[in-house]
């Protein structure tokens, strides 16, 4: 997995609450058996009209946000289905950080497995970041995972929380499965005990 430590980039403002996974990547794109290539269909139904022309009003279609690497959004981002295609599409588009007041659990988890940092902050701070993002491509936000800070284009600094283990994995690009397999002995011991206590499983 790709490492994440620092990121300085353009933030796209997506001032909507309950951005759901069907919006992020509609189901017609779930038929792939690969992880890559979903970026062109990120936010597909908001991004293109029926004739597949870009809808100019949509934030990621605006020239100043085409190279966005950060999204600032409203409450409950990523709600809906468990589809990991949502973070795959976000990452494939080039976005590595999503900032919102809150996230749906499964989406939040899925981000970390794909080198994306989701940051939850209080609404007042989101309001400041949303304004900053609205300034367009001149405004670059800086995310420092090590220090757990976001710096706006005006130099205002916010700190954020992140689970220590998730941070460690993200910063080092660690693969969960490899880490878990180092604990194979614990799993074997658990299985042997469970075979005695709950043999019907």
């Amino acid at each position: 997995m790709e490492k994440f430590d620092k990121l300085t980039g353009i933030a796209a403002p997506l001032d909507l609450i309950n951005v759901d996974t069907d919006m992020i990547i509609p189901k017609q794109f779930l038929k792939t058996i690969k992880r890559s290539g979903l970026g062109v269909n990120l936010f597909d139904e908001m991004r293109y009209d029926d004739d597949r022309n870009e809808i100019p009003d949509f934030v990621l279609n605006k020239p100043q946000y085409r190279d966005a690497q950060i999204i600032v959004a409203g409450d409950n981002f990523g709600c809906g289905s468990s589809r990991e295609h949502a973070p795959w599409a976000i990452k494939d588009f080039g976005i590595s950080c999503v900032i919102a007041p809150s996230f749906a659990d499964i989406f939040y988890n899925n981000c970390f497995k794909n080198g994306i940092l989701p940051i939850a902050l209080p609404q007042e701070q989101i309001n400041v970041l949303m304004k900053d993002a609205q300034k367009g491509s001149n405004a670059r936000m800086e995310i420092d995972l090590e220090a757990q800070t976001i710096t706006t284009s005006d130099g205002e600094v916010f700190t954020f929380d992140v689970d220590a283990f998730k941070k460690h994995c993200l910063m080092n690009g660690l693969d969960d499965i490899g880490l878990t397999m180092e604990k194979a002995a614990s799993i074997d011991t658990f299985e042997a005990a469970a075979a005695q206590s709950r043999p019907w499983v």
Partner: peptide, 30 residues
């Protein structure tokens, strides 16, 4: 790998929806 896994909670089981990376993790490690 489906958010409506919660359905199985009706039996008093702890049932989670998971993403595809987690599907792979469970396949490999249970």
């Amino acid at each position: 790998g489906d958010s409506h896994t919660a359905t199985h909670g009706a039996f008093g089981s702890l049932a989670h929806g998971i993403g595809t990376s987690e599907v792979e993790h469970v396949l490999a490690t249970q």
